[in-house]
Amino acid sequence: MTTTIRRRERPSVAASRDGGRRGLLSRLRQDWWIYLFLLPTVLGYGAYTVYPLLASWWFAFLDWPGFATAGTFVGVENFERLIGDDLFWNAFWNSIVFLVFAVPLRVGLALVLALVLNRKKTPFKGFFRTLFFLPVVTTGAIVGVVFTLLLDASGPVSLALVWSGLIDSPANFAANAGTSLYAGIAVWVWKWLGITLIYWLAALQTIPQVVHEAAMIDGAGAWAEFRHVTMPLLVPFLVIITLIDTVAAFNVFDLMQTLTGGGPSFSSEVIEIFIFRTAFQATVPQLGYASAAAVLFGLLTMAFAIAQALGMRWARGRTGAA
């Protein structure tokens, strides 16, 4: 085995040394088959990711009624209209509220469940893991439709709450302007909890048992061990998991469209539904305007993320200085 590895390493090391000196054309001619195998991915990524991304930027500067085959350039007019569009800002803030509530809830609940399911003493661990993972493999649109029935005023959730005396009269959680967005958040967290749980379980299993044993020998209780041993080791995973869940929280179209349709009265309209409505459901579909909404939302989100990162760096700096 050692011999084989050494034999295979040699050419690649040599190639990497030569790589800098050789020209692109020479490398293409020499290793053409590598690039041939890369080509499908490059083409697919280019056609289905890079092109739509760049195209949406270009479309954002067009006045393009959906019935026309092409749009006309209008500069930043779409962005100016968006800034004055209350429904855009309503959708923007709904998306932010969704993010702010849903991501910590999903990450936190999944961590708690993972800690429980990671314990040796927990019975039926495999069963519970499967149970929590089942909603993940269910189609979002189907979940939305089913929960529309479960959460309406004649559904089991409302009836159970009335029966238990928690509410006076039947409530329609997905069709009430005050609760529709939060109903969407709850269903989304329920649906995706299982996958975050798997991430956390994988993360927990990277912590060596000896670390726990050492903490135990030092007299640490369960809370102290979690706080001072487990959690610090999980922080890198927390960052990744939060990032993954944050991205997922911006992709809730199927669930929200089937659960609430963005209503009632736009109370649960997230940015994706706003874009869809503008692009496809308007009397005259406005492709340029919808693209501008997507671009502006992306820019604003990016600005938030940068501000947050700078804020964290500043806070860390101050803490370090203190």
């Binding site: 209503g263 736009f266 109370s267």
Partner: peptide, 15 residues
């Protein structure tokens, strides 16, 4: 927006 349908929906859902 809100158009006639949106307004009626708001009224019926108590918004």
């Amino acid at each position: 927006h809100p158009n006639l349908g949106d307004i009626v929906q708001s009224v019926l859902t108590g918004s």
